[in-house]
Structures are given as structure tokens and as C-alpha cells.
Amino acid sequence: MKTCIACGMPMKEASDFASEDTSKDYCVHCARPDGSMQSFEERKANMINFIIKTQGFDEKVATKIAESNMKKLPAWKAYFNKQSANMSR
């Protein structure tokens, strides 16, 4: 079973995939209306809003959770590696 590279959701049915295309590696929730994958910033903002909406957490905390969650996902790993490389310069 595939899991979404951008949010980790298990994708079983065609309806779980972006544009119902089972060859895609990302899910329907991580796709833009045109079917392409959301950018890092879009995904992060969506995740922060989602955490606030579903659990009511403080925005700063929600941001931290979103980042920690995204760090573990294949779609965003490179982004964090790049960030830490820049920081160590």
C-alpha cells in the first residue's frame, strides 16, 4: 500500500489519490485544484490551519507540530536538509 509522500496518509482506494490517479505519490488532500502537488509553504499553512481547526492549539505550537510532522515525510526531507545546511554555514 502506498502512503502519501506529502502527508503520510495511507492511500488504498483510487479516491485517496490526487485526481484519482493511482500512479501519483501524493493524496487528494495534498493536491491543488489542478491536481499538482502543493508547495512546501502551501502544505505547511494548510497543516497549521488544520491543527488549529481540529485541536484548537496555539498557532506557534501548531507551526512546530506541522514542521515536525513534515520533517519525517519524503516530499519535504530535502527542504529541511537544505535549511539545516544553510544554518550551519
Binding site: M9, F50, I51, K53, T54, Q55, I65, S68, N69
Partner: peptide, 13 residues
């Protein structure tokens, strides 16, 4: 643990 709760909240929502 927070991530587990986040996942549950996703489905709950």
C-alpha cells in the same frame, strides 16, 4: 505522541 493525536484528529474531523 502529538503526531498520533494529530492523525486521530484528522479522522475525527
Amino acid at each position: 505522541l502529538v503526531n498520533i493525536q494529530f492523525n486521530f484528529a484528522f479522522h475525527f474531523n
